[in-house]
Amino acid sequence: MNIFRLAGDMTHLLSIVVLLLKIRTTKSCAGISLKTQELYVIVFITRYLDLFTRYVSFYNTAMKLVFIGTSVAIVWYMRLHKVVKQTYSRDEDTFKHYLLIPPCFILALLIPLEFTVTEILWSFSIYLEAVAILPQLLLLQRSSNIDNLTGSYVFLLGAYRALYIVNWVYRFFTETHKIRWIPWISGLVQTALYADFFYYYIKSWKNHEKLRLPA
């Protein structure tokens, strides 16, 4: 474990805490894409299939349980909680997220890490995570005003994978000396998708103005 990966995991955890904080304190999920949250449930379940078969460390197991548990809890809040579900921006959250699943699955069949079920699903999960934020970014462009917690959530979510890229560079030079095409390229694509959001987020933060994404 290196500091970049720990920072990445903590940033990822913090993004989920911020989102849960927003939903629980404001009893609202306005501006949050349910489709992105549903994709994350698929990402975590297909990535952590080895949760009960392979023990890496207490930290690893605990974090996997937290990520699966919180992502399911968020979907539950947005779909079933009697108050929160009324605040879901159903009309704006229109990205056809199910269209993202077949290409990622086909890509995982064509370029898996290994031809085993768990590794094909792991590769699928890596590819899917790279594009899972698209419905959320589209929804942000349609939101007239993005509240601070939602903006912070998306920023932290983008920042976590950027920190993972630093972790991969660090591990390449200090540990593995092996190129890991699948996570690296997916991670670069994933972080690149946040590029314009990062630009407008940092600009709004510097100018102390409301965050707005151009439509």
């Binding site: 890496v56 990520f67 890490l113 290994e114 590794e119 792991w122």
Partner: peptide, 10 residues
């Protein structure tokens, strides 16, 4: 150690 066993990351 094949790469896949390297899934020590989240």
């Amino acid at each position: 150690e094949p790469e896949s066993k390297l899934h020590d990351e989240l």
